[in-house]
Nucleic acid binder design. Structure first.
Lengths: 214, 214
DNA sequence: CGCCATAACTTTCCAACGGTAAGTTTTTTC
DNA sequence: GAAAAAACTTACCGTTGGAAAGTTATGGCG
């Protein structure tokens, strides 16, 4: 099952990069992130196993490029969810939209999401990756500040943690097929998602208790 | 660095099982779950790479046994957190304790926790694993029902999802070193944990909106 | 004590993996 | 059309997981 039909005897002309990344996604879907091998990716792209090196360096480079693509798509999904709101939506609705974007990303691009969770397969010192990975968190952070502007640093930290952790944790459990059958059958998925988002938004915008110390 | 000192020329007498599991933990800590190899485990236990087969079958069997141990320890941590409460504590406090137990487990046994998140490295049809993995979820579920007895099925599902996902997601992000520096430095850890738990409990015990349909 | 059945390993072998180096083909550039 | 550069292939190395076959230690029994 070849990702990109290869004209016999012809080089890929830069399309190999895309073909290899698509092969990564295929393998992650079919057999999980641990099953990704350079040789299998190359086979699916119709090239020898050493052909990836000029494009990605080594296996870690390939996976890091894949993860970078994932972060970009995550940011796009969050922006798309924000854009789908009616104009002049409340800050709470915008906060929910960022979470919805994250969940939709994880559901739409399961391979990218699952690889994103394998921190030690990725080179987190890679510049492109770092840049791409900053965006999603920044979007959430901005939306949270806008939705709950009165929180002090500690309350904000707790709510940021809750929002990020719950949306990520939900997606992670679902992507790995864990978490009992809370969110099955499939038809129930969006209901569970929206109920979860509503609870998160409610908690994130709840007033902070008054405290003496930070 | 040998996990268990091996008397030269002597067999392990059943202690090899323990030694191999400890080696798995060591390697996960030092180099991540993907770096675990049968041969390296065997080296650290002072045996040949084929010595694990009689005990665990194959690599997957070893990792499944390790994950089973993890589930057991998770349940123990949750029970310990419940036991640490003053007698007659409120159901809300008991719900928080189950979450605290989960978080403490992930912090205390990072190797077990990280492997737990690699669903496709584990044989989830294994009987021992299935039994061990049921307990923790049951404990949370019971605590939630006790703390919010009036919820309908849908509200319960949403709150169960929130509780499990947020506590798991928080632990996962921290274990993988992700999540920006929300929960660093180290001293801040328990503060963040307790603030997070307070938010979760508040959300989980909030009244359900009245609805027409399920 | 001596013997043996069995459990607990070791050794050997294999295909597949990631990575490097060197060679070959294709494409671009002038 | 030739030279240079890019895009690969081939060959090789050390390592991995697993199977098969051989070896050694241990416990039970007379």
């Amino acid at each position: 099952m070849t990702v990109t039909a290869k004209v016999k005897g012809r080089h890929h002309h830069g399309a190999l990069r895309r073909a290899l990344l698509d092969a990564v996604a295929e393998i992650v879907i079919e057999e999980g992130p641990e099953a990704v091998t350079l040789r299998e990716c190359a086979r699916r792209a119709g090239v020898s196993h050493a052909a990836a090196a000029p494009h990605f360096g080594d296996k870690r480079g390939l996976l890091t490029a894949f993860a970078t693509e994932g972060e970009t798509r995550l940011a796009e999904a969050m922006l798309a969810a924000l854009g789908a709101l009616p104009g002049g939506s409340a800050p709470e609705a915008r906060l929910a939209a960022t979470g919805r974007g994250y969940i939709v990303f994880a559901r739409s691009w399961p391979a990218h999401f699952r690889l994103k969770c394998r921190a030690n397969l990725i080179d987190r010192t890679n510049r492109d990756w770092c840049e791409a990975a900053e965006r999603p968190f920044a979007l959430l952070s901005e939306a949270l500040v806008a939705a709950a502007p009165d929180h002090d640093a500690r309350a904000r930290r707790a709510r940021l943690t809750l929002a990020w952790a719950s949306v990520h944790g939900f997606s992670a459990l679902r992507a790995e097929g864990s978490g009992s059958d809370l969110w099955r059958p499939e038809e129930r998925a969006t209901v569970v998602e929206e109920d979860l988002l509503a609870l998160i938004i409610s908690a994130c915008t709840s007033p902070a208790p008054t405290r003496q110390t930070e």
